[in-house]
Simulated assay, not measured.
Amino acid sequence: MSARQPLTIEEVDRVIEMAWEDRTPFEAIEMQFGLKEKDVIALMRAEMKSSSFRMWRRRVSGRHTKHQATSRADRFRAACHR
């Protein structure tokens, strides 16, 4: 198994954007970028001001929508697509 190349600036920006979005689960970030939740937390800590990081951590801690297993995947689908 080969090691993943470091993220580009654009990829780091996208991971941060996805991490801030309430409806994007950590599993989606892992699938797209290969970063587990702990890796996303480390990236956010490294890339953000400490006050912004603390605010983000308060937002996502315990938030059901950030974890696919506890989130209803069909909550935003139109009734005709269920």
Rank of each mutant, 00 (worst) to 15 (best):
M1Q: 08
M1V: 08
M1L: 08
M1S: 14
A3E: 15
A3Q: 15
R4F: 07
R4Q: 13
Q5L: 12
Q5S: 12
L7D: 06
L7N: 03
T8P: 01
T8M: 00
T8S: 11
T8N: 00
T8H: 05
I9V: 13
I9R: 12
I9G: 08
I9Q: 14
E10T: 08
E10H: 07
E10R: 06
E11D: 14
V12W: 01
V12Y: 01
V12N: 06
R14W: 00
R14G: 00
V15E: 03
V15M: 01
I16K: 13
I16G: 10
I16M: 14
E17Q: 07
E17C: 05
E17F: 02
E17I: 00
E17D: 08
E17M: 03
E17Y: 02
M18C: 03
M18S: 02
M18L: 13
A19L: 04
A19E: 01
W20D: 08
W20H: 10
W20T: 02
W20I: 01
E21D: 15
D22E: 14
R23E: 15
R23S: 13
R23I: 09
R23H: 07
T24I: 05
T24Q: 01
T24M: 05
P25V: 02
P25A: 10
P25N: 06
F26D: 04
E27L: 03
E27R: 05
E27K: 04
A28H: 09
I29E: 03
I29R: 04
E30P: 00
E30G: 04
E30I: 01
E30K: 03
M31R: 14
M31T: 11
M31I: 09
Q32C: 04
F33M: 02
G34N: 11
L35I: 04
L35T: 06
K36Y: 06
K36G: 06
E37M: 02
E37L: 03
K38M: 09
K38N: 13
K38A: 13
K38C: 08
V40I: 09
V40Q: 06
V40N: 07
I41N: 11
A42F: 03
L43A: 02
M44D: 08
M44C: 10
M44I: 01
R45G: 07
R45I: 02
A46C: 11
E47S: 15
M48I: 00
M48G: 04
K49M: 13
S50C: 06
S50D: 14
S51D: 15
S52H: 09
S52T: 11
R54N: 15
R54T: 14
R54Y: 12
M55L: 10
W56L: 02
W56V: 02
R58C: 10
R58M: 12
V60G: 06
V60R: 05
V60Q: 05
S61F: 01
G62W: 00
G62Y: 00
R63S: 13
H64D: 15
H64F: 12
H64C: 13
T65G: 04
T65F: 00
T65C: 00
K66E: 07
H67C: 06
H67P: 06
Q68C: 09
A69G: 12
T70W: 06
T70S: 15
S71W: 07
R72I: 08
A73D: 10
A73E: 10
D74Y: 08
R75E: 14
F76G: 12
F76N: 14
F76D: 13
R77K: 12
A78K: 11
A79C: 07
C80H: 11
H81W: 11
H81C: 13
H81P: 00
H81Y: 12
R82N: 14
